[in-house]
Amino acid sequence: MDTYYNPSDLAKFAEVGEGNKELMNKFFSWYNAVFAEGALSEREKALIALAVAHAVQCPYCIDAYTQESLSKGATLEQMTEAIHVAAAIRGGASLVHGVQMKNVYQKLSM
């Protein structure tokens, strides 16, 4: 094995179910329902997935949801804004914990 991540492995996702088909079938059934058109459009869901894929830094998901976003008609501009949202929340989540730093600082400082 040259690398943990190989693009061709993405197509083997379903094979993960070999150890427990029932659980995998339940997962895919739920997964497919999640991404179906609903109160949110399929394109909006693909863009959310793309943003989350970047937040969790999953190469498989980034590959899959870049393709899915394109197939749902998203533009590069929309996809870029989506990952900025992910990046902003990640960055903001770090920064907002500064209040904890401030709390500790204030407790310890004269």
Binding site: S41, E42, R43, Q67, L70, S71, K72, G73
Partner: peptide
């Protein structure tokens, strides 16, 4: 037509 190697989106939404 998709501008690249992917399938077109839903026609009525587009």
């Amino acid at each position: 037509n998709p501008v690249g190697a992917f399938l077109p989106p839903n026609q009525s939404a587009l």
